[in-house]
Amino acid sequence: MVIAGIFFVALPGVRASEGDPRIHVLEKKVMGILVDMDSLKQAGAGLLGQSGIVTQRIHMYRSRESLSRRQHRNLEKQLQQAQALEQQVQSIQNKLDSLSGEFVRAGRILLSLYQAELDRFADTGTAEPRTVRERDFQSLLVRKEALEKQLYPVGIREISALQVEAQPWDTAPDLMRKADLLRDQEESFRKELVMVDERLHSLRQEASARRRAEELTREMDLFNPQEELFARGLDQYNAARNDLGYWEESGQKNPPPVFGPGDDNAISVPVTDGESIEMHSAEHATAPRTLGSVISSIKNLEQHRARLLSVADSLGRRSAWFREQAGR
């Protein structure tokens, strides 16, 4: 929890509350949420570890050809324990989902307050000493960027390039080896890029198909009795919420377009579901799969692709440089 650390360090010394008292209050709230989430994740990791051990034991018992009565009892106990652990993990996951929602909401408000405060600093009319202003400005900027990273994660996973440096004592074969290492990693990233492109292509096709299915029903809902019947159950709210870009921004799931009951006397009210915010992974934000979640996945994958491309290009350039140096 990098951001929690930053808040911990930054809060005591900053004068953020001078500008807008809500910043201080919200920072405390966000910090509290992050700490809670952190402890829940730790607890979840512990439970998963226990679950792994229990699973191994169960596997061990099951792989035996015959079991004694005592071993049977033990196996039953292990199975019960595994079930209990699974329930606990699910409970923790639910709590995490709830906290994620709170964090996103509070974080967004906090970001807007940071921005307002930064704008205020940019205003030359403030009569504070320049050094104090600059310090506060930098502090706010750091916290804003940290919060932004937490709220809008850039990549689906971290992309780490090899840290290979040329040393004065490197011989030509050494430099060539380093160039090869860099080129190998570049090729691996290029291969991943091809896969990402294929995935993006597939997701875009899916989004397009889903969008048309929703628009088709929305346009036909208004005028005629036939169309009312036809469109019933494919609620307008899905389309409206997709239009609002709600899920694109938050990675939130929306209810899938489902053909409703189709009875003439049923009310064509929207089918809605609970909210559940997936913050870190576009791949996880797809259940149940809907237009909103697909669009969210596309956006995350596009960001990932841009980063992958940049790193691959950089690796290619560095590899070429090493080769050039080796050739001299």
Partner: peptide, 12 residues
């Protein structure tokens, strides 16, 4: 159309 939705308990 208007819709209001809020969480009352962890999964409700």
């Amino acid at each position: 159309n208007a819709l209001c939705q809020f969480r009352v308990r962890k999964s409700f």
